[in-house]
């Protein structure tokens, strides 16, 4: 219990001190609001935008794009990664393509996506999928290729083969690596979606990126920083709610320190 309180107490105190210094600095040096607004202004923006509904609706639009795109990325990336590890021909074609495209920030796809899909949701989904899928293919391929052969031999002697081996041996044995790819894919998808939303206006819905973009246009830096805070908070929450529990259960099971 004591440990748990400490775990929350220290970050909270650190945050209060940081915000306090920020507020004090802005007040004592008298910055213009559009250079650095005080945290109280940022908080006011978040409060008002929450009340008028613009912020919650932007969060919903962005998260929906992210989650759907991410899910598509997982559904494509993991099986294709497995095919890469199984068939040399797939590895030598799709695998190399994945290696190349993984190095490309997926925001680079935005101009093409707009041409292909128009200023619509599908363009944003495409960008998110491009951010997710390549690192997942590579991580899955790497994970499957590095499974200790002894697991497969043991499974074979017990009568496991074909699809059963894929589901009950190869997938769980490669999971630590796949989880690494999932985290990386998530980070890539999140960054590229933000960049894409700031970069182009999507007519079918205003996301967080657009909100930040209009904050800039209107010189409302409290809005810009407010949206940034929301983006950070979502990143932290996703890590704590989705990835951390998966990772810690993996560590407990496998005994990875």
């Amino acid at each position: 219990m004591n440990e748990k309180i400490k775990k929350w107490l220290y970050p909270t105190i650190a945050a209060i001190i940081f915000i306090g210094i920020w507020e004090a600095a802005v007040r004592s040096f008298n910055f213009f609001e559009f250079i650095l607004p005080p945290p109280s202004d940022v908080a006011m923006y978040i409060w008002n935008a929450t009340l008028d509904g613009s912020l919650p609706s932007a969060i919903c639009v962005t998260l929906k794009r992210l989650l759907i795109g991410y899910a598509i990325g997982l559904v494509i990336g993991i099986p294709v990664g497995m095919m890469c590890s199984r068939f040399t021909i797939v590895k030598d074609t799709v695998g190399i393509l994945a290696l190349g495209l993984q190095a490309l920030p997926s925001v680079c796809w935005v101009p093409l996506a707009i041409m292909w899909f128009g200023q619509e949701e599908s363009a944003m989904l495409f960008v998110v999928v491009m951010g997710t899928v390549w690192s997942l293919i590579l991580a899955t391929e790497h994970g499957v290729s590095n499974i200790p052969p002894i697991y497969l031999r043991a499974a074979r002697t017990m009568g496991s083969k074909g699809l059963h081996t894929w589901i009950h041996v190869i997938a769980p044995a490669a999971f630590p690596s796949i989880l690494g790819g999932m985290k990386q894919g998530w980070a890539f998808a999140w960054r590229s979606l933000m960049a894409a939303e700031i970069y182009v206006t999507i007519l079918t819905g205003f996301g967080l990126g657009q909100l930040l973009h209009y904050g800039r246009e209107l010189m409302e830096m409290n809005q810009v920083i407010g949206v940034m805070c929301v983006v950070i908070a979502i990143g932290l929450i996703v890590d704590k709610v989705l990835f951390s529990p998966l990772e810690s259960s993996l560590r407990r099971r496998w005994g990875i320190d």
Binding site: I150, R153, P172, R253
Partner: peptide, 9 residues
Amino acid sequence: FQEHALFPW
């Protein structure tokens, strides 16, 4: 086998 080959998952 020499290694126990138990599945850690």
